[in-house]
């Protein structure tokens, strides 16, 4: 069942066409990635979805209803963790619930049981500066998940991590996702990450962004932590080709 449907969406920012005739859809429980070169308008797409921008043309529907500034369909995880340095981890995690108007004590009680699965047990009362980069990203993801929105928007969530931590986090996210099947739209420029995590991948062109390819990833899960299958290797090569024709240099 389709949760998110974008049809022929175009966006112009400051006289520059950023998104050109984008049509995509995400089904319930599906993990969809948008893969594109840097600066291809992937982040603008998220700003459209979170209501920070409105499209010039086209429609965005969530569960069949047009997206309005009041429809809170998305929980957003930014590229850098954006944890508030003055709030303890638990109070960072409940931020979205507090904004929704939930009482602080109630929100804390609700998120506390999730700390163990997110590898944050014992760090509830720590400040963000006391946590490693990987733990901070997990806290940011937990803050996203507890908002209990229909769709999770992840904007290059591991882009700021070192390679080793990133690999660990991708494996961890794959496990978590297999257990929970959050409907997820991931933006990334990491081909391997997209292939490892996604059910489907849309490839964006350079600005103005068009969708130049769509790939199904049928590989069995879990995919991380074992050798790449011949299919996955071929898919990665195809994706690289599709991307490289776009860089123009």
């Amino acid at each position: 069942m389709t949760v998110l449907a974008m049809d022929n969406v175009s966006l112009t920012l400051g006289g520059t066409r950023v998104l050109d005739d984008i049509s995509l859809h995400v089904a319930r429980g599906e993990f969809v990635s948008i893969l594109g070169p840097s600066g291809s308008g992937k982040s603008s797409l998220f700003r459209l979805l979170t209501g920070a921008l409105t499209p010039d043309r086209g429609s965005i529907r969530v569960d069949g209803a047009p997206l309005s500034s009041r429809s809170r369909a998305f929980a957003f995880m930014p590229q850098r963790d954006a944890l508030m340095p003055w709030r303890r981890i638990i109070d960072n995690v409940i931020l979205g619930l507090e904004v929704q108007g939930m009482d602080r004590a109630e929100a804390r009680a609700r998120v506390l049981p999730l700390f163990a699965t997110f590898g944050l047990e014992g760090f509830e009362r720590h400040y963000p500066a006391q946590l490693s980069g990987g733990m901070r990203q997990r806290a940011a993801l937990l803050r996203t998940i507890v908002q209990d929105r229909p769709i999770q928007l992840l904007d290059e969530p591991f882009g700021a991590l070192d390679a080793l931590t990133r690999a660990g986090m991708q494996g961890w996210l794959e496990q978590r996702w297999q257990a929970a099947h959050w409907t997820t739209l991931l933006v990334t420029h990491d081909v391997r990450e997209a292939v490892a995590l996604s059910d489907r991948i849309y490839v964006f062109s350079r600005r103005p962004a068009r969708i130049i390819a769509e790939f199904e990833v049928a590989e069995p899960r879990p995919r991380l932590g074992r050798p790449l299958s011949a299919n996955a290797v071929r898919l990665e090569a195809e994706l690289f080709d599709a991307l490289l024709t776009q860089t123009g240099d």
């Binding site: 979170t50 957003f76 930014p78 904004v99």
Partner: peptide
């Protein structure tokens, strides 16, 4: 941090919040 403002906005926070 503009990321924090954007995050709050995505959560539906008002300007005052």
């Amino acid at each position: 941090d503009p990321d924090i403002s954007a995050l709050l906005k995505s959560m539906g926070a008002s300007r005052a919040a």
